[in-house]
Design a protein around this nucleic acid. Structure first.
Length: 624
DNA sequence: GTAGGGTTAG
């Protein structure tokens, strides 16, 4: 700013000598003097048109509407009939400063609109969150017919298409771009690939990307985000490495999208490398980067690191707060989640629907029924928001887990949404815990209808019968499962060691060190048994012999991943394991005992939450 | 003078 003011004063002094004070004598003003002088410059009434045009453009870049308006006023005062160039600059300035009304008025008052005027106004609406109007304007421009389209028109309208997922219009523009050879323009191609990716046509997006002879950093980011949006996280990380090899310099856009891919994959090592780049850069305090870093660390089990990043940001926005609240919730740190929820409001921000999903889920993880009900009411009564399907899902879970199964069922019946599989699944799991066979059968029936191919649902019902000793029904449920097309999702666990992810299935045979792992696990189990560990067979209600049950439990994927961690990671380093399914009771007991025997912190992330095992205890307090 | 990219939710 200081440099700009000095430069500006120098220019004005040199060209027009409007200043009453001597610039040449001493430019070493303090900041406040400079600011005062800057105000005096803006208040000048005799600036020539080229200077005013220059300043208008600067105001558009820096979003300084006060100064922009001052320039506009001077133009009017001078009696200057704004030409196409000046009008477009003013329209753009008002649009960039968020004043669409002024931009539109100027456009409407123009005696003749040029191509640039149309492009500018379309961009104005699109950039101010009104893409529909941007598209309508494009149609109006087409009808008007007084000017043709340029690359600017196409990329600008594609931007509007990306915001409202207007695939048909995008395809028409694509055809038009090909006809006029606009596709060689990097802005046009990048905007095209962005729309295709956002409309889930990732292959088309990738085809455009691969066909581009030249790519900008925006192109790379758009493709990266495209993969992330389409949940192709591995592809996103491969692209990131490719970008690195191609010499693309990271910026806050590349970094935030790369970090979100790392977070989704819980790829901590890769995420750390990106974080290292951030630390050396100037965009570490960028709110998007900070939010993805908080999310990354929280999802990778590093809740302290997440909080460390969160604390460094001075001006926190709602997304950053939400990322941190959700991180605490995921780790079962309900108290911290709730304190942060209050602090966020003290800082002057109102919670949104996402915030409430996080605080409600923190209630799920600790079985806090009354608190959950209070938050659920606050959504509509205190913050005038509407309940969404996630809120109901959390509430059904909170009620069911606490044994209020009928109340949970009532909530499902009364809500205006279609019940989701997760709601029926949660209700069914609660029915197993509280032995409610009747409601379990009803929930299972609904679940089979909406998820006919999920074998886990059949197993859940079978387990409800087994928990009540109804073995004939267990057999019937199993037969039904065999006759159906349903597939059981296999339990998979993975662990990151150095820069490699090791994946294990139950009874894994393919890992290169598998024999060594089984040997080490057997020795360790022996040691554990000597210290009082007994397996918990009731958590695996397979209809199999006792000895086979023991065998299946022993080789659960998380135990294999843990053993490799024990073999490879130096003592003192936490063993962090990820699992695609919920951790079973036996593995939970195993990890508790293992944490006390080895004196190590063991962190297991299952499909629902984090468990931190330390000194024989788990952070979930046995509620999960 | 006008155009393309990023964060949080069971």
């Amino acid at each position: 700013m200081k440099a700009f003011i000095i430069q500006n004063l120098k220019t004005l002094h040199r060209k027009f000598d409007y200043r009453n004070f001597s610039l040449a004598a001493n430019l070493d003003f303090d900041e406040s003097t400079l600011a005062q002088e800057q105000d005096r410059v803006w208040d000048q009434n005799n600036l020539p048109i080229p200077t005013l045009q220059h300043l208008i453009q600067k105001c558009a870049r820096e979003r300084t509407i006060r100064e922009g308006k001052s320039c506009h006023a001077q133009i009017i005062q001078l009696g200057f009939q704004a030409d196409d160039l000046t009008s477009n600059m003013l329209i753009n300035m008002y649009a960039k400063c968020g004043n669409l009304g002024h931009a539109r008025k100027l456009f409407d008052e123009m005696p003749q609109r040029s191509l640039v005027s149309w492009n500018t106004l379309i961009g104005a609406y699109t950039q101010n969150g009104n893409a529909e109007v941007g598209l309508l304007l494009f149609k109006e421009m087409h009808r008007d017919g007084s000017c043709s389209f340029s690359e600017f028109t196409v990329s600008g309208v594609l931007c509007a298409c990306a915001l409202v997922l207007a695939l048909i219009e995008c395809k028409q523009l694509h055809a038009f771009a090909l006809k006029l050879s606009f596709e060689s323009n990097v802005y046009v191609s990048t905007a095209l690939l962005d729309v295709y990716a956002k409309c889930n046509l990732i292959e088309d997006a990738n085809w455009i990307f691969e066909s581009m002879p030249q790519r900008s950093d925006v192109t790379w980011t758009s493709m990266l985000v495209g993969f992330v949006t389409n949940e192709l996280y591995e592809e996103a990380l491969l692209l990131l490495r490719r970008a690195q090899r191609a010499g693309v310099e990271y910026n806050q856009f590349t970094v935030s999208s790369a970090l979100s891919a790392c977070a989704a994959l819980t790829a901590l090592i890769e995420g750390n490398q990106v974080h290292a780049v951030v630390c050396k850069s100037s965009f570490g305090s960028n709110i998007y980067v900070a939010s993805t870093l908080v999310d990354l660390y929280a999802k990778c089990g590093m809740i302290k690191d997440a909080y460390a990043v969160f604390s460094t940001v001075d001006e926190k926005n709602i997304v950053l707060w939400n990322a941190m609240v959700s991180g605490f919730a995921r780790h079962g740190r309900s108290l911290e989640a709730m304190i942060l929820f209050e602090k966020m409001q003290l800082s002057g921000l109102c919670p949104n629907q996402v915030t409430y999903v996080s605080v409600l889920s923190s209630c799920c993880h600790m079985g806090l029924v009354e608190r959950g009900k209070k938050y659920f009411d606050m959504i509509t009564k205190e913050h005038n928001l509407s309940h969404n399907v996630f809120h109901y899902s959390c509430m059904v879970d909170i009620l069911g887990r606490s044994g209020l199964i009928d109340e949970a069922k009532d909530l499902i019946d009364k809500m205006s949404f279609e019940a989701t599989p997760s709601m029926w699944g949660s209700l069914l799991a609660s029915c197993k815990v509280y032995g409610n066979v009747e409601l379990a059968e009803e929930a299972a029936k609904c679940l089979f209808e909406v998820e006919p191919n999920n074998a886990g649902n059949h197993v859940l019902l079978s387990n409800v019968y087994a928990s009540r000793g109804r073995w004939e029904d267990v057999a019937r449920a199993r037969t039904l499962l065999k006759e159906s097309e349903a597939k059981k999702v296999r339990g998979i666990s993975w662990i990151e060691i150095k820069d490699k992810v090791h994946t294990f299935m139950v009874g894994e045979r393919n890992h290169p060190r598998i024999s060594e792992i089984y040997g080490r696990l057997d020795d360790f189990l022996e040691e554990m048994r000597n210290q009082g560990y007994r397996g918990e067979n009731e958590h695996d209600l397979h209809d199999v012999e006792e000895s086979r049950k023991q065998e299946l439990l022993k080789h659960h994927s998380e135990k294999l991943a843990f053993t490799l961690g024990l073999m490879c990671l130096p003592s003192g380093v936490p063993i962090r394991i990820m699992k695609n399914l919920r951790i079973c009771g036996d593995c939970h007991s195993f990890m508790k005992k293992a944490s006390s025997i080895t004196g190590r912190l063991i962190i297991v992330r299952d499909n629902n939450r984090f468990h931190h095992f330390r000194d024989g205890f788990c952070s979930c307090g046995e509620f999960w």
